[in-house]
Design a protein around this nucleic acid. Structure first.
Lengths: 145, 145
DNA sequence: GTGATAGGTTGGATTATTGGACCGACTCCT
DNA sequence: AGGAGTCGGTCCAATAATCCAACCTATCAC
């Protein structure tokens, strides 16, 4: 792991969800798949790596591991508040992938309650204007350690 | 690499920017650092890995490598349109990291033109209502291959 | 007893990453 | 002219992570 680099919440966030398969596992959980085998199948991750990733996501508070039956004990993974808070970011990543990576129409599509196909946009939480380059200024920058 | 898993633009996006150091390198470029040595220093990545990451980001159209002087030839990395389109996502990730990972106040802070400290929010591009769980419905889901 | 389901663990082979040294082609200082 | 510094990398051996298939435990259904 990196002991250096800029003090930055992006780096900290990537420390939690930045490893390979973590975000795809979370995608499945947010889509409603909560069982190990289903997550393994739908992501394509190998089972040992997936087990490790789910463990760290639980440790870091993004998912919770909930027993849904005794005898035999069986567990499912459910998103915590922190996990649900990643949903907009995943939708943003999906939008970016649709636009700049995936050929043809997006394989997964959402509709918003307003009736339109969902194309999420990032806005300022205060004035609700789009966050565009040039409309923001740096107040404080994390130092490089 | 994964040959299987769900057909999904999140997975496709991660194929481009999901490797370790890629997003941190992009963060530095978007912050205005364009030189190899500075990016290496500010991220903490080893130089050979950084060179490899920058190469794939250029290949995939997220960055461009531009010669800024001859004799000796020197290059800098600038964001393309696709790279700039990742800015809102990085800000969202920063917001998430500030809230759920980083202890204390966020090390990097932005102000929006409206005067408020920036706390970005994801909204529907059509009706501008926040994208909350329960306000969207799946129209089409990428199949697992 | 045979299969199926669920949630993993184990082992061995392959790949990726790390950190530091090194390099070529300059420029700047003295 | 000699020496140091800059820039954008590459090369190397040691270490760490990942992949895949096989295996395991417990239980239920037949």
């Amino acid at each position: 792991m990196a002991g250096a680099g800029r003090d930055c919440s992006i780096a900290n966030a990537l420390g939690v969800i930045g490893e390979r398969w973590s975000l795809l596992a979370l995608r499945e959980v947010l889509l409603g798949e909560r069982r190990f085998d289903q997550i393994a199948h739908n992501t394509g991750a190998s089972r040992d790596i997936l087990a490790a990733r789910l463990r760290t996501l639980v440790e870091r508070g993004v998912l919770a591991r909930v027993q849904y039956q005794e005898r035999p004990p069986r567990y499912e993974y459910v998103p915590t508040e922190a996990g649900r808070a990643l949903r907009p970011i995943m939708l943003g990543l999906m939008e970016w992938g649709d636009r700049y990576v995936t050929d043809g129409p997006g394989p997964t599509r959402w509709e918003h309650d307003c009736g339109a196909e969902l194309h999420p946009e990032m806005v300022c939480g205060h004035c609700h204007a789009p966050v565009l380059p040039g409309t923001t200024s740096l107040v404080r920058l994390g130092q490089v350690r």
